[in-house]
Design a protein around this nucleic acid. Structure first.
Lengths: 210, 210
DNA sequence: CCGCATCCGGGGCGATACTG
DNA sequence: CAGTATCGCCCCGGATGCGG
């Protein structure tokens, strides 16, 4: 991005992460941890492949992302956030908080969705009623895309992939799942919204507000 | 900005404020309050005038900015943030915090500066040691640009313009003033950095950390 | 298959000129 | 004072190619 050429802290930050797609790449790396190029592409539907390569180079040069070559049998490149990159989490948090009103009406036609994007709604809305209790894993599945909602020591997070030992499973369209996470919809009264909840519902209920 | 078409809270926010210059326009409106078009241009050196007009229209349409026509004798247009627009302040706060490391080496050659941009460094670094005490005004002047650093009820803020009854005045280059505000430089030992402090230095010292 | 590089069309952006 | 008009450029989007 062309610099704003302003001696201002906000402008300097936007010089680094203000480009199109850049903060969404940081989002993916925050949620996924170490990621391959292809995984990032999958989490950024619509990005042009050359743009992703450009942005990763720029972020690496800015000290936000680091690149690692895996050992020969794997022979793949792995991208990670640096400490400086992880320091962007509060920025993403506030962007996500401000955007919540745009989520309550459900996805716009043509909107893509990935289950692990539920991480910020989950962190904003959920609270573990039993933070000292055993860790919980809840499997989320939407349109064949899997993610794991987990609470450990009162810390709530969502990561992509399948759960090892889920206490419960929730399947359905994104808007319905968001309704449950936000506390607007009871998990056992949500069948008519295309939502299926199985397993130990109380484990899920332990995380819900109200 | 072209939509990311993602059902994700972060992406939805960037659909609204992710365009170039947009968040800097919000910065100006946060710091200045109700502003005229020309004042905004002055606080956004380098912006193309058609871009400013476009952005203001988009922000108005998104419910972030509201436009008011003043009465005939004044006959000017005044732009203000809506409640929704002011809710972006935490986003700007975190962007500013992340950008602090880019400020410590001083401005890059060609960087523009406005005194009221010191608002976020001030809010990040300063703390009123006597929050119950009388309100303080400290005049800041840099390159002929004036701003007021004020503390009232423990709330620290910086606004553009001249102070009415400043307890102290600080004049000098931006980097030197930032050194004082961050606590790295003693206000009375900063003469060799081109800094001049006059008036009741203890009023300033009341706000400094350490 | 993974991680890009290259090419090309379109639109957002930058700079300046101009106007009610 | 508050914009509009215009024009060139470069960033971005989409497709394809290609070496490891």
């Amino acid at each position: 991005m062309r610099s704003y050429d302003e001696y201002c802290s906000v402008a300097k930050t936007l010089d680094v992460v203000g480009d199109r797609w850049t903060l969404l790449i940081v989002r993916e790396l925050l949620l996924r941890g170490a990621s391959r190029y292809t995984d990032l592409r999958n989490g950024l539907p619509g990005i042009a492949t050359n743009l992703l390569a450009d942005r990763l180079r720029e972020l690496e040069h800015a000290g936000v992302v680091s690149r690692r070559e895996a050992a020969p049998p794997v022979a793949t490149t792995v991208f990670t956030l640096t400490e400086r990159g992880r320091a962007l989490e509060p920025v993403l948090d506030e962007l996500a908080r401000w955007g919540v009103p745009y989520m309550v009406d459900g996805p716009a036609p043509g909107d893509a969705f990935r289950a692990h994007w539920l991480a910020w709604p989950a962190r904003l809305f959920l609270r573990d009623r039993d933070p000292g209790g055993p860790p919980v894993e809840i499997a989320l599945a939407v349109d064949g895309d899997d993610a794991v909602l987990e609470s450990d020591q009162g810390e709530i997070w969502v990561r992509p992939g399948r759960a090892e030992h889920p206490a419960a499973e929730m399947t359905g369209p994104p808007y319905a799942i968001l309704g449950v996470l936000s506390g607007r919809v009871d998990p056992e009264r949500a069948g008519d919204r295309g939502l299926t909840v199985s397993g130990d519902v109380s484990a899920l209920r332990r995380l819900l507000p109200d």
